[in-house]
Amino acid sequence: MADQPTAAERFIQGILPENPVFRQILGLCPTLAVTNGLKAAITMSAAVMFVLFCANVMISLIRNLLKPHLRIVIFTLTIATFVTIADRFLAAYVYQMSKVLGPYIPLIIVNCIIICRCEVCASKQGVVAAGADAIGQSLGFCLALSSIAIVREILGTGKIFDIRVLPAVWPDWVIMVLPPGAFLTFGLLLGLVNWYSARSQQTAGGK
């Protein structure tokens, strides 16, 4: 088999170069849905990190026993179980936040990021690499969600975590915390990321 990326490489790649949201364009549903507040975005990223880490480690442990045509069933079963555990945990310990996040926590089951990482990394590499990959990708996911949430929350309500950031004369752009604001913010930030990466590729290629 060709040289596989090491654990450290997996970790670094997940944060910016192979960012799941901005570069791989995966997991768009929670990205748009829970980013109207920074607190909700961070809670969702924490839940995804838990599920991704546990699923990756578990799949990596049994990777040698997986049969090709049953592997999707096993991935789905594993992910659904860990999502149920995460959902119950949130409902028990941060009940208000779990009500805000509502149906988007169980939707982590069909989040393409997790199935994709299980398929690409966990079923092929050891536990350490799989774990590092999970943490790297989750950090990238958290970064993406937080960047969108910060823009939406500041422009939409002038506050972050209930601390007033913009002066009181700012007329709250309420549209930013509503659905259209989600699409627009994400589209504009994606354009920005594309422009930046094209530029750095140009300067790297031009040298």
Binding site: I62, L66, L70, I74, L77, T84, I85, R88, F89, A92
Partner: peptide, 21 residues
């Protein structure tokens, strides 16, 4: 493998339900 995993996950979910329910 699917059957063993199902039993394993089923029992862990039952445990979660009993503690957090």
């Amino acid at each position: 493998l699917v059957l063993i995993l199902t039993l394993f996950f089923g029992s862990s979910l039952a445990g979660v339900q009993m503690t957090l329910g």
